[in-house]
Design a protein around this nucleic acid. Structure first.
Lengths: 135, 135
DNA sequence: ATCACTTATGCAACAATGTTGCATTTTTAT
DNA sequence: ATAAAAATGCAACATTGTTGCATAAGTGAT
């Protein structure tokens, strides 16, 4: 399953990549770089940076940033044919202020937004509040 | 006007703060830290960091972050009673892929978003595309 | 299985970005 | 004018991310 995922993005199958991807697969929500590092036994910092960059560029994972130096990463859904920060699926990112988890949530109806004279290619929606568990 | 703005947030009136705030007032769109530095004659890096942090904490400016290490700052609209990253006005942030400007745009109707069992306090919407000038 | 080609890894060194502590100066309210 | 509180400037440090390069490993064709 992990191998199929890597191959589907035409990424070479290396032990380290499998290990990192497994961390994402075992994690339901978005995770920070530090969380990944904590789940790896031993690793090279630079290689991890490059691995993550390549995962992002190939649409395997996506980056979620929020004000206050919050930066997390999450697996892209299957349908996501993301290339370089522009991912095509329509989900929102929700940050719970209690547990500080970030959730990728699918919306049944994604809102229409129109701005006169502006051509919108993609919309990213981020919510803040309390999650289903904490509330 | 600058002095009134600082006083309204109960911030002490110092020459440096006035200078930094003036940069924001003279700029229609969001600006990066480097843009601010370029517009100041001479300054202390640390003081600038602290000034910006205090402006954000007091709801004078707000931070806009987007995937790909994009971090910009913009004046909060008057009605914004922001405290610590949660600002109350409903505008969206639009990044033009041509000119790389980031615009704060008011929406006439801000979309309603409901997620079952999640309590949403604030919503932040970011659009990417081509701005009115570049398109 | 072997080979040649391409890509990934690990290390060192570097670069950019942000923070803390502290002495001094400035602002503000009295 | 003065005292209290806060801002500034400097040094040193911490964190985060990048580049170059030699070596190792994965991939596809033979």
């Amino acid at each position: 399953m992990i191998e199929k995922l890597l191959k589907s993005k035409k990424l070479r199958l290396t032990p380290f990549r499998k290990e990192v991807l497994e961390v994402f697969i075992n994690e339901p929500n978005a995770i920070a770089l530090g969380d990944i590092e904590a789940r790896l036994k031993q690793f090279d910092r630079i290689t991890l940076y490059r691995t993550i960059k390549s995962f992002i560029e190939n649409g395997l994972i996506h980056e979620i940033v929020m004000p206050g130096d919050i930066k997390k990463l999450a697996l892209c859904p299957d349908e996501c044919s993301s290339v370089n920060h522009v991912h095509t699926t329509q989900h929102i990112h929700f940050r719970c202020k209690m547990c500080e988890n970030i959730f990728c949530l699918d919306l049944h109806e994604f809102p229409e937004i129109n701005i006169p004279r502006f051509k919108i290619d993609s919309i990213e929606i981020q919510g803040t509040g309390t999650c289903n568990i904490c509330s």
